[in-house]
Design a protein around this nucleic acid. Structure first.
Lengths: 342, 342
DNA sequence: GTCGGCGGTTGAATCGTTTCATAATTACGT
DNA sequence: ACGTAATTATGAAACGATTCAACCGCCGAC
């Protein structure tokens, strides 16, 4: 099958020039006379030459690729992160290769190893847990790393993340501003940092508002089904013991709650119960009642992460940066102001 | 900052052996005496040596990575495909690097170029459109390629795909078997091959069944919203003009139809209307009425694709293979047999 | 007529591995 | 002890690009 790979030498021979000239055509085209360049380009296309990146990299030192390791590629946040990172990278002539750790430490470690062997320009990682040690090693090896959607407790590694406390605050503030007073927070165990942060923000908003109260309902998971069962509990209550505003720690839970509230009890959303989620997944806007939610500035985060990374690579002043973005409110029907007094 | 990268030479010096021996420790550990090996391994960990993959690849010829290019990484089918491919690859000591073309031909082409420059072991591609030409070139360059979820019209390139005609057949057959007779097919333009195939299968099932009829309703897109508006049309009809079984070309459409049918008209699913989707996305089982659907054997497809690819790399008998899988029915509540006669 | 300068071109050296023919060492049977 | 085989270790060559000092014409200045 196909004769052995075409090398720069073959091109040079056919075009009757030195190998250095071919290399120049590839990398510094304007240093080469027009006629020569054309001759070389013809030879390249005639032979179907494709540059061997391994050789280039070996000699030139570093590669053009950026490694991105995400927790779950099927999570819309990460897939748009990946896409945005790709675009940002393309603008600086780099390519992103994506690794899916599936929240598995072993897989994460494997990808880090592979990327390091490939001498990637740098890595963007949303780590499974605390991997400060490995990061430290990478740093010592001269590899630039930026954490995404997580911060380094040791403050040594740069990060680009989002302020979940603020997100929780905004969500509940919005419920309060639209007239609700009896707020419920539905989330899984507060051992998950994100849930804890969002709850913290929610509590802060309630504390600032006289006459407002907050009840915490623990769901068994962050899924639609768990949301449905939590929603059934809430909907089954007598009106005076029922919350009038519910803040769910993510959109899946909120969708479950919505299903339960609408179908099982036939309550009206938002008139009898306002509902707000978190993440702005695709389904949020195509829910039966379009769901108000909190959105992370995904594209901006990705671009910033790439920027911080290249800054780290070029600048190399050794200082770590931590950028924290504010999430934003996406208002939809599920929290519209009540039409007539409760 | 860290001093310049540690090379195999440094390790050899520290361990007092020749470079070849270090290489053997890395690649053929059993060819090295125990004591020597240990000495080398100590030196490696002491210096924090990381093999330079570019150099290895340059010398050894081919890399250990497989390139996978998907249409949309946020599509659950592709993300589980990616994950399964990763696992299958890991078993043969390879790594998958993922590129997301976002259904964009330019991006697809970029990834193909990058992967070719990286001299990947092979590529798995779910192509945006017809890229037979580029594939042909790759083949001539000696790169193995396997198409995933698409076939090559020219029959030159191997492929692993799924039989959508069979899927459509199974879906409608199931509706007929459970007693429905007036079937509706809801899908976007049949210019999309998948939609056309599924419809073809549906027609076949209806043709085999005396007394059954099929109506085609065209949706504006393959989304929840488009499904909802199609569903409203259907639900608004008088009972004798309304289909009793609806087959949607994908789950999103079906979920939209379900929302419309339940909320707007309050019809009962499955008693008054049976509903079946396609793809088995996560939301299918957590829909208000769990959705019956058609599932592709994703993991199996991924493993097979990797197998076919390595077969192509090793065997190299030049023959292209096309593997076609049968989709399977996932029965849930939305098509349960009617409780009492219509 | 000589010389400096400049746009183009050359080709050897280099990057860090793997590979492999060869050498060195050890083991063993007689 | 000695020859032979088996086991280990050695180090130079090779992979295919980039880089860079040197070189080559050629033009214009003096």
């Amino acid at each position: 099958m196909g004769t052995r790979a075409v090398s720069i030498k073959d091109v040079a021979d056919l075009a009757q020039v030195a190998v250095g000239t071919v290399s120049n055509v590839l990398n510094n085209p304007n240093r080469v006379a027009d006629r020569t360049r054309e001759r070389v380009l013809n030879a390249i296309s005639e032979l179907g030459f494709v540059r061997n990146d391994a050789a280039r990299q070996l000699r030139a030192g570093l590669s053009r690729t950026i490694g991105l390791i995400v927790l779950d590629v099927s999570n819309p946040f990460f897939s748009s992160l990946a896409r945005a990172a790709e675009e940002a990278a393309a603008e600086i002539g780099s390519t992103v290769v994506l690794g899916d750790s599936g929240s598995d430490r072993a897989r994460e470690a494997r990808y880090i190893d592979v990327f390091e062997e490939q001498r990637v320009k740098g890595m963007l990682i949303s780590p499974v847990g605390d991997i400060s040690d490995r990061m430290e090693t990478l740093r010592n090896h001269g590899v630039s790393v930026v954490l995404v959607d997580r911060v380094d407790p040791g403050r040594k590694i740069s990060s680009v993340s989002v302020d979940d406390v603020a997100g929780g605050y905004i969500a509940v503030k919005h419920l309060l501003d639209s007239g609700r007073r009896r707020i419920a927070f539905i989330g899984a165990s507060t051992e998950i940092q994100q849930v804890a942060d969002r709850l913290e923000g929610a509590l802060k908003a309630v504390a600032e508002h006289a006459g407002a109260e907050l009840e915490v309902i623990e769901a068994s998971a962050m899924t639609v089904l768990a949301g449905r069962s939590a929603g059934e509990t809430v909907a089954a209550r007598a009106e005076d013991r029922r919350p009038d505003g519910v803040f769910c720690a993510n959109d899946l839970l909120a969708i479950g709650v919505m299903q339960a509230v609408l179908m099982v009890r036939g309550l009206h959303i938002p008139d009898e119960l306002a509902l707000i989620g978190y993440d702005d997944i695709d389904f949020a806007q195509s829910a039966v009642v379009p769901l108000t939610t909190i959105r992370k500035p995904t594209e901006l985060m990705a671009r910033t992460a790439v920027d911080v990374l290249v800054g780290e690579i070029d600048g190399g002043d050794g200082e770590s940066r931590r950028v924290v973005f504010q999430p934003e409110l996406v208002e939809r029907e599920s929290t519209a102001t009540v039409r007539n007094g409760a």
